[in-house]
Simulated scan of single mutants.
Amino acid sequence: MKIAVTSASGQLGSAIVKQLTKEIGKDAVIGIARTPEKAKHLGIEIRKGDYNNRSDFDKALQGVDAVLLVSGMDKPENRIQQHRNVIEAAKTNDVKKIVYTSIIGDEEKTAFSPVVKSNRQTEKDVQESGLQWTIGRNGIYIEPDLEYIDTYVKEGEIRNCAGDGKCAYTSRPELAYAYTQMLLNDKHDGHVYNLGGKPITQAELADAINQAYNTDLAYHPVSAEAYAKDRKEALGEFMGTIIAGIYDGIKIGANNVPSDFEMAAGRHHKSTLEMIKVLQNR
Rank of each mutant, 00 (worst) to 15 (best):
V86A: 15
I46E: 07
G43I: 14
I87E: 12
K124P: 01
T35G: 01
D189T: 15
Q280R: 12
V70L: 01
M1Y: 05
K97W: 11
I46M: 09
A244E: 06
Y148K: 09
D50H: 07
M182T: 14
R137M: 04
I104H: 07
T241D: 11
K2N: 12
D150V: 07
I142C: 07
L217C: 02
P221A: 10
L146W: 04
C161S: 11
S9Y: 04
L42H: 14
S7C: 13
N52K: 14
Y100C: 08
D145A: 07
C161Y: 08
F57P: 05
A28K: 15
F238C: 00
M263W: 09
I149F: 03
E274L: 12
T101P: 00
E225L: 07
G105S: 01
Q19N: 15
A60C: 13
H41E: 15
P36A: 07
K22S: 11
S7K: 06
A265R: 01
V278L: 04
V278N: 01
A168S: 10
Q132V: 05
E157Y: 06
A4C: 12
W133G: 05
P76Y: 12
Y141G: 07
K26L: 13
E88G: 00
E23Q: 15
L69H: 06
I135M: 06
Q82P: 06
M263V: 15
N85K: 08
T101C: 07
E147H: 02
D260P: 01
Q19K: 13
S223D: 08
I200M: 10
N194P: 00
S55Q: 09
F238W: 11
N256H: 10
S14G: 11
V116P: 01
A176E: 01
S118C: 03
G25P: 06
K97I: 15
N210M: 07
N194V: 06
A39V: 12
Y152C: 04
K198Q: 11
A162I: 01
V64S: 12
D207M: 06
A4M: 09
T241S: 13
T180R: 03
S9V: 10
A28D: 11
I80R: 12
E128V: 05
G245C: 09
I142D: 04
T215K: 07
Y141T: 04
G236Y: 09
T134R: 04
A8Q: 10
R231L: 15
S113N: 05
E174G: 00
Y141C: 01
A265G: 10
I246Q: 12
I87G: 11
L195V: 03
N53T: 14
Q127H: 02
G49E: 14
G43H: 15
R231G: 00
M239Y: 15
N194F: 02
N256S: 09
K96M: 00
Y148V: 03
S7Q: 03
A111F: 08
A228V: 03
I242T: 13
E225M: 02
